[in-house]
Amino acid sequence: MKTANEPKQRKLPLEILGIGLGIIWLIPFYLMLTNAFKTPDGIFANVMALPDSLVWSNFVVAFQELEFLKSLFNSVMITSVSIAIIVIFSSMAAYALARNKSRLSTTLLFVFVAAMLVPFQAVMIPLTTMFGQVNMMNGAGLIFMYLGFGCSLAIFLYHGALSSIPVSLDEAATIDGANRFQMFWFVIFPLLKPITVTIAILNVIWIWNDYLLPSLMLGQDNATIPLKMFYFFGQYTTQWHLALAGLTIAVIPVIIGYFFAQKQIIKGVSEGAVK
């Protein structure tokens, strides 16, 4: 006969495993926070130990050296504009491919899917050369590159979501007098909100943390936070106390953004999972 404690006993190993994984996941944050308040000597003396005293000047110097407000503005602008363009153009392209059944649309979809397999490093030098010839080694050129590299996965995901939306909705909108753009923007696109949230999350993580592509396209005047962080890592020495303080400062906007958008993010992801 089963006792009331048996289900709890069965869940105990999973709970222990979850706690252990949670601790492992939090270790990098512990190291970042504790060592951000130390002197260089304190870091090299014992990385895992708590700081003897809180060195707040690390954050002041890191904030100034990063030109944090300026680099934060650059990161937010490039990320937000890139996400908006990827979502708009990819959703429209996927809609056109999903609603026009032909060999050409199938071939184009295959080309977009195949493009995901091409690594950026393989086309890095030719692309930067071409963009340099047309004077687009700037933020606009970087956003255009993000559209090219991000649209393949976005179109693939949107195309899969559109296959579950019946064509009868298009026909009903046409009967009501809507043109093709109105049909897509006011009828179809709102139904794509769950997959839009997923695409936005994936691309925000990629674009916000990207270093290689901005390092090739941007100068110091419009550098993003990852580019500015490289200032603390020299050829012969690394200013770990300032680097970790800078990382702590850089994480704050992400946490604040997630705090305000968590409801929409969780809702969108859960709706996408249900569908």
Results as ranks from 00 to 15, higher is better:
residue 2 K to I: 14
residue 53 S to H: 13
residue 62 A to H: 02
residue 67 E to D: 12
residue 222 N to S: 14
residue 121 Q to E: 10
residue 33 L to W: 03
residue 136 M to G: 02
residue 238 T to E: 04
residue 253 P to T: 00
residue 86 I to S: 01
residue 209 N to F: 04
residue 272 G to E: 06
residue 210 D to M: 04
residue 152 S to W: 13
residue 264 Q to T: 11
residue 127 L to E: 11
residue 87 V to E: 06
residue 118 V to L: 09
residue 229 M to P: 04
residue 91 S to I: 02
residue 52 D to F: 11
residue 115 A to L: 05
residue 132 G to K: 11
residue 76 V to A: 14
residue 5 N to L: 15
residue 104 L to H: 05
residue 119 P to H: 09
residue 132 G to E: 01
residue 40 P to K: 07
residue 82 S to F: 09
residue 112 F to S: 00
residue 152 S to G: 10
residue 34 T to R: 13
residue 127 L to D: 04
residue 143 I to T: 06
residue 126 P to D: 08
residue 273 A to R: 01
residue 64 Q to D: 13
residue 62 A to T: 10
residue 247 L to F: 10
residue 193 K to F: 14
residue 27 I to M: 07
residue 23 I to M: 05
residue 20 G to Q: 01
residue 209 N to S: 09
residue 160 G to P: 11
residue 275 K to G: 06
residue 237 T to D: 14
residue 260 F to V: 13
residue 121 Q to A: 13
residue 222 N to Q: 13
residue 50 L to G: 12
residue 114 A to L: 09
residue 23 I to N: 03
residue 43 I to N: 08
residue 116 M to G: 12
residue 12 L to K: 09
residue 24 I to S: 02
residue 149 F to L: 12
residue 195 I to N: 00
residue 204 V to E: 03
residue 215 S to D: 12
residue 267 K to F: 11
residue 63 F to D: 05
residue 164 S to H: 15
residue 171 E to S: 13
residue 185 W to P: 00
residue 175 I to L: 11
residue 77 M to N: 04
residue 261 A to M: 15
residue 198 T to G: 08
residue 263 K to H: 08
residue 94 A to M: 10
residue 169 L to W: 12
residue 79 T to P: 03
residue 204 V to R: 03
residue 17 L to F: 12
residue 190 P to M: 08
residue 177 G to C: 07
residue 198 T to H: 05
residue 237 T to A: 10
residue 124 M to F: 15
residue 156 F to M: 08
residue 200 A to D: 00
residue 241 H to V: 03
residue 272 G to W: 08
residue 95 Y to H: 12
residue 136 M to C: 07
residue 65 E to G: 01
residue 125 I to H: 08
residue 158 Y to A: 12
residue 116 M to L: 15
residue 116 M to T: 14
residue 74 N to Q: 05
residue 37 F to H: 02
residue 230 F to K: 09
residue 212 L to H: 03
residue 20 G to E: 03
residue 261 A to T: 15
residue 58 N to H: 06
residue 225 I to P: 01
residue 226 P to N: 08
residue 20 G to S: 14
residue 227 L to R: 00
residue 164 S to L: 11
residue 68 F to S: 00
residue 2 K to S: 14
residue 30 Y to N: 01
residue 239 Q to M: 09
residue 36 A to K: 01
residue 221 D to G: 07
residue 182 Q to I: 09
residue 241 H to S: 11
residue 264 Q to A: 10
residue 78 I to H: 00
residue 250 A to G: 11
residue 122 A to W: 13
residue 83 I to S: 03
residue 177 G to E: 05
residue 65 E to I: 02
residue 269 V to H: 04
residue 132 G to V: 07
residue 233 F to H: 09
residue 62 A to E: 03
residue 198 T to Y: 13
residue 163 S to M: 15
residue 40 P to Q: 13
residue 121 Q to T: 14
residue 186 F to E: 12
residue 27 I to P: 00
residue 102 S to I: 06
residue 144 F to L: 13
residue 198 T to K: 05
residue 56 W to V: 10
residue 60 V to I: 10
residue 35 N to A: 10
residue 6 E to N: 07
